[in-house]
Design a protein around this nucleic acid. Sequence first.
DNA 1: TAACACACCCACACACCAC
DNA 2: AGTGGTGTGTGGGTGTGTT
Length: 567
Amino acid sequence: MSEPNTKKQKLTPYKNILVDNAGNPLSFHILGYFTKSDRSQLINMILEMGGKIVPDLPPLVDGVLFLTGDYKSIDEDTLKQLGDVPIYRDSFIYQCFVHKTSLPIDTFRIDKNVDLAQDLINRALQESVDHVTSASTAAAAAVVVATNGLSSKPDARTSKIQFTPEEDRFILDFVRRNPKRRNTHQLYTELAQHMKNHTNHSIRHRFRRNLSAQLDWVYDIDPLTNQPRKDENGNYIKVQDLPQGIRGHYSAQDDYNLCLSVQPFIESVDETTGQEFFKPLKGVFDDLESRFPHHTKTSWRDRFRKFASKYGVRQYIAYYEKTVELNGVPNPMTNFTSKASIEKFRERRGTSRNSGLPGPVGVEAVSSLDHISPLVTSNSNSAAAAAAAAAVAASASASSAPNTSTTNFFEQENIAQVLSAHNNEQSIAEVIESAQNVNTHESEPIADHVRKNLTDDELLDKMDDILSSRSLGGLDDLIKILYTELGFAHRYTEFLFTSCSGDVIFFRPLVEHFLLTGEWELENTRGIWTGRQDEMLRASNLDDLHKLIDLHGKERVETRRKAIKGE
DNA sequence: TAACACACCCACACACCAC
DNA sequence: AGTGGTGTGTGGGTGTGTT
């Protein structure tokens, strides 16, 4: 993506873009307000692309094209003088430059009769949709502009441009279409590509400080398409509840649940330092994720590594329970990522072991954070009651996690690779066994509440929708989404995946069969493997192999064999 | 001098990789 | 398959310079 030959690709490709059929330069006159640097950049681009500048408002407008970046800033006298002469957006020049070609200028013509603000928004949103689908092209274009020393942004050190009402509306609308990403930096970087007068920093700051209060509704975004949903009449659906951002927070209850889960794995404790040593934490984070899916298993694991293990699991449990017992509000662990604060905390812990501090900076500092856990209302002495309350709170706040994964493993061709990449060499029988025995929280393959609320057909249709989603990432994402959306137990999705060799089009018959009969496995179906068939593959009896090849085809049998053997 | 556009900060949630 | 090393970029800000 970076630019090895920035200097070499200079002007030559642009020379003949702004010329007429005879090769003569097109003439441009620039109208309205521009910053100094913007104006000179625009002029540079025009000249580089073979165009010509007409500096003064020409008496004869024939053959001159009028450009503006802000129609409203053109004074009335000038407008009168021009009459019906068309005026074009300066983005024509930028777009020609970016695409290194002469674009039809008519599409950049400003229609003076329509609401200009709305027009700006519509146009930019259209561009933003295009941008999403060809992000790399746009990014590449941005690189081209930047590396030619023609950055389209004002220089923050020498100029400062006010936000116009149109720009504010545009920002708000853009955020409403991307409500989950409203806190990110990335969203405003994308937005800045459509607003040449302001930087990403500036736009983000503008939104947070001046516009966020107006975000009293957002569009209802379809998680599968990332597009706003429409109602029966074709109007966009608006919702008042802002969706969660794309990154969660750890509450005190989360930390407590984490500590309770890992506590049984404490093998020994160094009595002088209080340092705890753990047995292998087998299955702990999978289990946490399936009980509290608002954090992923890698996140739970990281929380353990960076916080709980440093703080002390027993110490946090004691702190939490004590606080609850005293009708206080426990704080989550904080400030464990800077080395200095960890050192400080170690010192404190050494001198006063049961100080009740939730983190290295002390309880006063932590309680000043405004995102800390909700009140634990239980005033019971019982730790179990507090834990139950915490568990309820945590699962109530569970939400389907976002999906920002960039790889789509469904598009990978080598299933063996996929299977082995997920270390999935268990036989199907083993998967079923572990699903039923190891994880007591997931005894039902498909959660009861889902089956109560949906007919089997609805459930299957929803599953198909999810499976056909382009936004799906890897197996982990699949497990997460099927769990949160349809209550599929972690192990059940893993089983489906294994049975189908990763080919999700075979999920439907398998699940259909399960819904009808309660049986996990489906015999004699092309593309779907059973434990018995896997055993046949392992044993490699010739007759059996022929039967399998008849059923699944030679290629699938070979792929399956390799996957099972981990080749 | 106040307002505000723009730059920059940093803890940390979440992830990936190699072993 | 668990674990340590470490990258990425969100989320919630604060700092700096211009008008």
